[in-house]
Amino acid sequence: MDPSQVATDLGWWSVPLAMFAGAIRVSTPFLFVSLGECLTEKSGRINLGLEGTLVFGAMTGYAVSYMTGSAWTGVLAAGIAGSLFGMLHAALCSLPKVNDIAVGIALMLFGVGLAFFFGKPFIQPTAPRLPSISLGEWSDISQVRVALEINPLFFIGAALAVAMWWAFRNTRAGLIVRTTGDSAAAARALGVSVLGVRFVATTIGGFMAGVGGSFLSLYYPGSWNEGLSSGQGLMAVALVIFARWNPLLCFVAALLFGAAGALGPALQSIGVSQGYHFFNAAPYVLTLLIMIVSSSKVRALRGAPGELSIVK
């Protein structure tokens, strides 16, 4: 083996380093799904079905990458597949009396079922994976170098978070989405098609969730199987509420969640193995606690779109 690959003994320092590295590696699917969901919810609709979209995107991305030999084509295909699910959700919810939360749960089941059905032949093969960018060449410590092997999608997601944050405040499109989400009546008064805006927002949200799924199958952990998602799509929806519908906070929440997930394995690797169940539950406990602390009975959630069914 290459001697430069041999790890330096970092002792306890390996825990914060692993959490830092884990935050970057694990956060990307959460980031994409939560940004997509953020956009959808800002327009006044909730799509709980992004878990199904994520899993279907993961399968499609892997399958297309395998068949075309190009991982980026796979990412694009995953996004397109995701936007089809978004369109279906938006179209169904455009019908009067149809409940968006229920449609989301239905599409979650439908998406997962279809992904498993068509994904059978792709469990075995090895598809081309996404490349990463090495930013840690300056360091002599292999752990640091590895932690700074970063996938371009991470940067795209981070840039998207900033762009969305800026666009919601400063662009006409952002204003239209926010108005539609806060008050359908006000949007109509401005001459905006409420259903049209929500259709576009849900479709783009689906696209992003599909891309998030392709990150799972094409980069980390980097293969397709039926157990690939451990609820990332559902948790990302939770993170949006946690992040108060602020794209920048979505980014922070995704990083936090990734870091919390890395805690359990990192502690065990330096010999702290007692109570690993609870370290593994840490991300969920942390999210719940922060929700409890930051919510309030009297005032509506700050930043919450007024039309959103879950905050009414």
Partner: peptide, 26 residues
């Protein structure tokens, strides 16, 4: 939590499901 703190019940019940599994396994 929903009534007392305004915590969204859909998300809270989902998070508590994951916690319940950890308790069972433990």
């Amino acid at each position: 939590l929903r009534y007392g703190r305004g915590v969204n019940e859909t998300i809270a019940s989902l998070l508590m499901f994951y916690i319940a599994i950890s308790i069972l396994n433990f």
